[in-house]
């Protein structure tokens, strides 16, 4: 069984946000509820401030604090290492949103980010919070895939509807290989500068494993002990503007 993980090469990330857009289309995200986001921020002060950015999906942690705090086991980890939410069991207590150090979880019932409220324009039927004119993945409430029902929390699934169909023993899921293209997460598939790599962290020959070992892959907020399965490769740090943000105390968040 694979242990899926991702590597994001910050030396190659151009901050184009194609990943966020692809994710929004693939997973029918509402504005402001980006499973995959690129955070823009400024580092340094006048007269030499620099614009930087940081791509941030769910980290699908090895020790997910969101899972530990969920009182109903609605948040669970699959055998292949993906953290998902069973929308049939989620009670909407939002403790997972409190406990996630990365801020990558979203509650359905909130004030809309933009007007008109898209949920009002495309009203949902039954339990579903809205009914978009286009629909991406098959509705799979037990794995938190599809349109979010009312009163629950949602998050990035690593495009579980795609990766779970990959043939057993696959080491890399990449857009460049026709055999794996359809099973590759939308953000990875669409990344123009190929800054994203996806594969089996347990396979020493996978691209992600090789990159982590050869380029010193680092993980975000290690002090929380969550052990993300998304690694960042920062290189010399002298590349473009993609970088791991520093905390307000000036300490790097890695």
């Amino acid at each position: 069984m694979a242990k899926w993980g991702m590597v994001i090469d910050l030396e190659k990330c151009t901050g184009c946000q194609a990943c966020s857009t692809a994710c929004q289309m693939e997973n029918n995200r509402l504005p402001g509820e980006n499973y995959q986001d690129v955070l823009y921020y400024t580092e340094g002060k006048q007269p030499t401030p620099t614009l930087k950015w940081f791509p941030r999906p769910c980290m699908h942690c090895e020790e997910p604090s969101c899972l530990h705090v969920c009182p109903t086991k609605a948040t669970f980890k699959t055998a292949d290492g993906v953290v998902l939410i069973d929308w049939n069991k989620c009670i909407g207590c939002k403790f997972c949103m409190i406990a996630c150090p990365y801020g990558v979880r979203f509650y359905t019932d909130e004030k809309p980010l933009i007007e008109p409220n898209i949920k009002d324009v495309f009203k949902g039927s039954g339990d579903l919070s809205w009914n978009p004119p286009y629909k991406g993945p098959q509705q799979d409430n037990a794995h938190g895939v599809g349109i979010q029902p009312n009163g629950v929390v949602s998050k990035c699934t690593f495009c579980y509807h795609k990766i779970s169909k990959a043939p057993a023993g696959t080491a890399n899921l990449t857009n460049e290989d026709e055999a794996t293209r359809e099973f590759t997460p939308a953000c990875v598939r669409t990344c123009a500068p190929t800054a994203r790599y996806f594969g089996d962290l347990d396979n020493p020959n996978s691209e992600v494993s090789r990159m982590i070992s050869s380029k010193k892959g680092t993980r975000l907020l290690e002090h929380t002990g969550n052990k993300p399965q998304v690694y960042y490769v920062t290189g010399s740090g002298a590349g473009g503007g993609a970088a791991v943000p520093m905390g307000r105390n000036g300490i790097n968040k890695v």
Partner: peptide
């Protein structure tokens, strides 16, 4: 405040996540 207060009544005891302080 909770999204599904009635679901809570069965989902917490049946799941019993012993790691969760909320449980």
């Amino acid at each position: 405040e909770i999204g599904h207060p009635f679901r809570m009544l069965w989902a917490i005891p049946l799941s019993f996540q012993y790691l969760s302080p909320l449980n």
